[in-house]
Every structure is written in C-alpha cells, then in structure tokens.
Design a protein around this nucleic acid. Structure first.
Lengths: 335, 335
DNA sequence: GAATGTCAAGAGAGCGCTCTCCCCGGCCTC
DNA sequence: GAGGCCGGGGAGAGCGCTCTCTTGACATTC
C-alpha cells in the first residue's frame, strides 16, 4: 500500500530547471516554448512519471473533461439482449476516447437515481450530458439546456423545451417495411406497437399507419413495451381479435421474436401463413427460426453522432437542433 | 447560455451568517454543529441552490468519489446479445449509487485505449478500478495494486501479481452440467470450449474434463471465442470428427445457440439425437428452439460484489482475496 | 470565585493547477 | 544608436474546498 507522493508540476519544474508555468505550457501543448526547454520538460515529465491532477486543473479551468451518459435503468431494454444501450455506450465511448474525455455512466431508474442525476449534472460536474432513450416528458434535459449545460438526447424529447437530439428515421423505416408487406400481397397486417410514452414507440406506430391507411387496409394494433414477454401477450391479443391476420410488424426485434414463437405455437407457419418484420436488427435476428426480417437502425452511429454534437456544443459551437439517421430494411426469411 | 456564477461555500456562509468552515461541516454531516445554525445553513444552501464543487473537494481530500470500470472493448461479448457486460455494469452502478460514487466507464480495446486506461487509472483520477473479464495476462491490474490503488477483477487474473477478484464457480457448474448429461445416458459428449486466454474459457474446459475423465469417456474438444460465429464453426468441426456425438456442452449460450441451429441444419434432433447445454443463461436461452438448458451465473451479483469489495478496499479495510459465487444448472428442453 | 474542562464555531493555510500579467533580451526600424 | 517591438519565460494570484488549530463561551469543580 505505498501511497507514494505523486509528482506535481512543481517537482517537474524543479527537475527541468524551469518554472511551473513553463511546464504547464508544455504539458498543455502551448507553442510558445523553445524546443530545448520543451525537450527538457518532457524528459522530466517522463522520468518522474508525472500525470496532471485533474481536480486541480478543473478547479481553475472550470472544465471537467468528462461527459455523463444517462440512461433509464428501469427500461427493460437496457439489460435484455436488446443491443440498444450497449450500442449507444460504445459509440459514445469511441468518440469520447478520441476527444480524450471520460464517460460517466448514470442509471436513472429509480426516483432517487433520477434525483441523483439531476444533482450531479446541474452541479456542473460534467461538461455535458447525453440522454439515451427518455421515457415520457422528462423535464431534466430542458432544465439543463436552460442552465446552459450542453445536452443531446437520443430521440426527440417529448418535453416542452427544445433540446438537440439525434434520432433515426423511424417513420420512414417502418413505412418501408409495412409497404413491403403490402407489396408482397399481405392485406391483414397487424402491428405490435411500442410504449406510447417513448418517441420510438410513437413514431413506429405512425409509420405503420402511414403505410396502412393510404392502402385502405384495416389497422390492427396491440401494445407492448419492447420486451419478449410483452410481445408474447400482444401476439395472443392480436390472434384472438384477428385470427386471420397474415402479417405482423413488431416495433422491436424482441417482440418480433416473441411473435415468431407464438405464431408457431399456434401452428401457423412463418412466413407462409404470417409474415413478421421487426425493428432494430439485433444480433439474434439473424438466428431466429426463420431468420427475422427487420428494420435496421445504426445504433452505434447514434451514440457517436450524439457525442460529436455534444462536444461541439461544449466547445461553444452551434449545432443543428436535430440529426436524423437513415434506417434500412433487412429482408431475411420471415417476411 | 447563462453561465450563472455558481454559489460557493463562501456565499452560503455569508448568507447564513456563519463561517465557511461551519457550512462545510454541515454539508459534510459533522455532528458538532448546533441545531439552529445547522438549520440556517441548510436553508441558505437550498435558497442558493448550492452544490459542492467536486474538483475543489477532491483537490484537498485526495478522493474523487468515482470508480473506473474497465472492459475490453474488443471482446465480442461486450456488444453482442451476451448480457455479461450490461449485467456487470448494472450491478456496479447499483452499488456505487448506494455509496454515492460515480461510475467511469472505460473501454480498453485498442492499444491506445489500453494506454489511456493506464494513464488515467495510475494517475489516481479514480478511487479504485474494476476490471471486467480480462484477456490474457494483463499486467495493469497488478501494477495498480502495487501502486496501492484499489483493484478488483471479475475472474481470477492470469497475471503474476495476485489481485482480489470475484468469480463464479465455473468448474463446479460445468461439472454438474456434464455429469447431468452422463447421468441421462449420454456417452459421446463433446465440448465447445471458450478462448484459452480467459479464465472462464479455461475453467469451463477444466470442468468438462473433470466430469468426462473419471467416467472414462472420450474427450472431444473444439474451440470458440464465445460468439455464435465461432460456435457454428466449432460445431461443424466436432460433427466432422465425431459424427456420432450425442451431446455438446458449450462454454457460452451464444455458442450453444449456434450449435442448436447447426445440429438442426444437419438433420439432427435436439435433444433426441444430441443434447446441448450452454453456459450463462442469457435471456435468449429461454427462447431458442428448443429452449436451452444452461449453467446460470449471477452476473449482476458479480458486479455488485466486485464493487462492494472495491469500496471496502478504498475505505482501507482488508478483504478476502477471492470471492466465488455459485452457479446453477437450469434444465430446459435441450439436454 | 478562580481554575479547569468542554464543545461549538472561526481563522487560515494550503491542495495542484492555469493564466494573466510582467520582465528581459534580442532584433528590427528609422 | 536609440526606441520600439516581440517572443520566450517567470512570478504570483487565485480556483473552492477541507481540516487543523485556535479562540471564546459556558459549564463544572473545589
């Protein structure tokens, strides 16, 4: 347990025979230092194993070089095999690494957790805050934005205050998927919609309607919360109400997977009797039986773009209030 | 972009009509402050919306109240639908929340990333470091431990320096699974082993052998890296070498899932012709066809225990060098 | 009533860093 | 040749907090 005294700027300065200010200049990459001195300082730094004390630096610069990523822990999506949150994390981590900033992960499931996030973020302990997949109209992003703290959300926030966000084209993607079902002759197309307090849930349902309505087809909706359990229940509901349905669009791959299994359990063949298309393109989608057709969204890219926007914001640049990434229809065997 | 000046201790002190020191005492919960003053300070704090500046506090306390969680980004496991990393994250986040500390997530995939992690952690920017699932004999945990920085690993580290860790009983769990196969009459039991530069990979193979050898059965091994792709390849290898195998134990559910599908693709029935047992109990395991029997490991609990150990270490307490959690054989339909 | 003890609260010294001055020396300009 | 300028480097003032030390007020004891 050697708690060897860490070398300070002062120590490096003494060793290099210069002043603290000069060492600071070299460490922070100022160009106004002559090459010989610069070299001497660098040598001293590496000999002493000097690492700047971030707390001291933050104290004066008012920056922390860290960014919070807030996700609702309660969301079943977070820790099932949906790859949404890991994808966002990875994308964010990549961009932050490039910018040499830290990622502080906060789960805001419980009320206590949410309160903690609020305290921490409003306390300016981070240079910016990333919100992944908000539920309902959380006032926090708006509040932070009004405090002048950089904020970017994944998915258009439902709250009043406009906050910059990055999202995918849910409506277009779903429209394309449902249109594909129509084009391949399906006429009794149901949907398992997502939770209607989340933008993704809302817009994917909108996309379904946008394709169904103009085609003059009936609109059959059951609701789930993106999980398999809810998908099973929703499928039974749909089958009870419309035993003759010939296609299901599910707002998540997890629910689509559940539909696949439930349909089979009732003796229906996929895609012969019923076509199924999901949304997300999780890894499992390629391994279901039959492999699942789905609308792919570029999750990691969302994380990356959110982070890039946030960093620009933190650097004082102004950014587009919204960034919408394309989705892609992946056709496998299920529909 | 109002960058309203944040209130400082000083401001609170003035407003409450006391000294900075007293405010600090109240904020930090010292008991040596009289109730009237205490109340006045609390009122001033909430009126001003005071939030302590963590950087300033760290500067003097030498604590950062944050903990790093390092995971090898490269690991395919991190971002497939394996729930290992999300589980660890969640467990750690829960415990840290209870302790009011921050979770700094670091991905150490690339050499540059690893270097960054090293710089950050050795620079004492965190109060402790959690390593999830190390590959090979990474010297970093040992080095940190020698520097007196609290470290806890998930899985016994393969490096030279002993480092406290939390792991599950791989050997016992796998032994039980394979013994179950033997007990149910299987005699030609192959295994898809995990990577042999990871403790989990090594010990699960050991567990297989521990059951196979005393039974006098042949030892058939193919290797994968825990992913489905590798599972497909390994299954074909096993089938090519031993077309008459009647059971497969796979060191991960992902590989077991791949085995399931590959076996079916060759016309074999599971479990009638070949039994399959996996390891992990990921959510998908209950939804494969047939549902997968598997060895469950309490992932979140690992994260929680690691964190608790780390916090005790950081508090100066001494801890058990190893904590081994039990695994559980979950029998579904595949074997 | 003086001496001693006790406990609440204030004073003040930094923690390690950045950054704004300021100085000094060399070179250019007229 | 003198003044001005410029660029490299040093001095020193904090950033906001904690914590030790000290003081002061009051209770206790003989």
């Amino acid at each position: 347990m050697t708690t060897a005294q860490r070398p300070t700027l002062e120590a490096v300065a003494r060793r290099a025979g210069v002043s603290r200010a000069t060492v600071s200049r070299v460490v922070n990459g100022s160009t106004t230092v002559g090459e010989p001195i610069r070299a001497a300082v660098r040598r001293a730094v590496s000999e002493l194993g000097y690492v700047p004390n971030l707390a001291a630096r933050s104290l004066v610069t008012q920056r922390t070089d860290s960014v919070a990523l807030v996700m609702p822990e309660a969301a079943a999506r977070v820790f099932s095999d949906d790859q949404y949150f890991p994808g966002i994390i990875r994308g964010a981590a990549q961009e932050l690494e490039a910018a040499d900033k830290q990622l502080v992960l906060m789960l805001a499931g419980s009320p206590a957790g949410h309160e903690r996030v609020e305290r921490y973020t409003t306390g300016r302990h981070v240079d910016g805050v990333l919100f992944a997949s908000l539920h309902g109209a959380d006032p926090l992003p708006g509040r932070l934005a009004r405090l002048g703290i950089p904020v970017v959300c994944s998915g258009r926030p439902l709250g009043g205050t406009p906050v910059p966000y990055v999202d995918v084209d849910h409506i277009g993607g779903v429209h394309r998927a449902v249109q594909h079902l129509i084009d391949s002759g399906r006429r009794r197309i149901a949907t398992i919609a997502g939770p209607q307090d989340m933008v993704g849930g809302i817009e994917r349902l909108t996309g379904y309607r946008a394709a169904i309505t103009p085609a003059g087809l009936p609109e059959w909706v059951a609701y789930g919360d993106f999980t398999r359990e809810s998908g099973v229940a929703a499928t039974w509901q749909l089958l009870a109400a419309h035993p003759d349905l010939d296609a299901i669009f599910a707002a998540s791959d997890l629910m689509a997977h559940a539909a696949l299994r439930t349909l089979r359990a009732t003796g229906r063949r996929v895609p012969d009797d019923v076509a199924v298309i999901g949304f997300d393109d999780i890894e499992t989608a390629a391994y279901t039986d039959p492999p699942l057709s789905t609308v792919r969204q570029p999750i990691q890219e969302i994380g990356r773009r959110m982070t890039r926007q946030l960093l620009r914001l933190a650097a004082g640049e102004s950014i587009e209030p919204a960034l919408v990434l394309p989705t892609e229809l992946i056709l496998r065997d299920s529909g």
